[in-house]
Nucleic acid binder design. Structure first.
Length: 298
DNA sequence: AAGTCGTGGCC
DNA sequence: TGGCCAAGACT
């Protein structure tokens, strides 16, 4: 099947994005030339669904305490959960700790360089494996995060937002547009992401400052609003997630064992409270030490 | 494959 | 105000 190319020649797009990135890229610590692969991996875990601004201080503190996978693996998983603080989705802390252990066990303490090996680590999915391989090891991979998907949806497909789940067509676009040379591909990947983060944003894109405007299908079509199915929201008030958050906050700040009554105090409804606590235990975020006594996992 | 999983900031 | 969104992974 022949590939239909409706966008500008790829090499032109590459030049535009690389030039724009060189001029406008944020100075983020995990992009520094001396950032280790481990540092890049830590940043990617933290950036899964958490904004850059909130990640920055946590990232610095984390790497000061655990500058290598081995140093984290030697500590208790509960310490990782505590250091995670209020970044949200604390299972990521547990998975990062498990990934560090796997790196020690399977890779001699060095972050693996192969995409497949990265993908096999706990908490590392398609995106994170590609991101670490690209950003830390300067390899050629299609890096499809929410920013890149949005830029492609607009510039290539002419739609305001991508579909809920990543489609095969999106992967084809990403691969088709990937520069041949690995180092150029790595710069392209981070450049498109940055463009999505700073200019081609979800709510109020600044098309006036977009280097791709002349080549953007969505802009050419008059920037029609999103037509697809309603994107499901993330309700939070009154959910188990909220209760879990409150319970875990108590355990994080306790530095030791916590009696039942202190957990009971955070949520009045006993059935939901109990269900939330059970969920935390099942997830390994909380450890029961005796009847009615809990702590972070050791 | 649609749901679940935290937290905070923005308009 | 409250819904929407933020470098996803997992089941």
């Amino acid at each position: 099947m022949a590939t239909t190319t409706t966008h500008a020649p790829a090499p032109l797009l590459h030049t535009i994005v690389l030039d724009w990135y060189r001029e406008h890229a944020r100075d983020l610590p995990w992009r520094a030339s001396d950032a280790s692969p481990w540092a890049v991996m830590v940043s990617e875990f933290m950036l899964q669904q958490t904004p850059v601004k909130r990640v920055l201080p946590a990232y610095q503190a984390w790497l000061e305490r655990w500058p290598t996978p081995a140093s984290l693996a030697e500590d208790a998983p509960g310490e990782a959960v505590r250091m995670w603080g209020r970044l949200g989705y604390p299972r990521r802390a547990l998975r990062l700790h498990a990934a560090a252990s796997a790196i020690v066990e399977r890779h001699g303490g060095e972050v693996p360089t192969e995409h497949a090996e990265l993908l096999a680590l706990p908490g590392v999915g398609e995106y994170t494996a590609a991101a670490v391989a690209s950003f830390a090891f300067r390899q050629r991979h299609a890096v499809l995060d929410t920013n890149v998907r949005r830029v492609f949806a607009r510039a290539v497909t002419g739609e305001e937002y991508p579909a809920q789940a990543t489609t095969a067509a999106e992967r084809r676009t990403a691969v088709e547009l990937l520069p041949d040379h690995p180092e150029v591909a790595a710069q392209w990947a981070v450049g498109v992401m940055e463009l999505g983060a700073l200019v081609c944003t979800a709510r109020s894109p600044e098309c006036g400052g977009c280097p791709l405007r002349a080549h953007c299908a969505w802009d050419r079509a008059g920037r029609p609003p999103y037509q697809g199915p309603a994107r499901r929201g993330q309700s939070y008030e009154g959910t188990d997630r909220q209760v879990r958050g409150k319970l875990l906050a108590v355990l994080r700040e306790a530095h030791g064992e916590v009696p039942q009554h202190r957990l009971d105090a955070v949520w009045p409804e006993p059935v939901q409270r109990s269900r939330a606590l059970d969920g935390l235990i099942i997830d390994g975020l909380v450890e029961p030490v005796a009847p009615g006594v809990y702590r972070l996992p050791q």
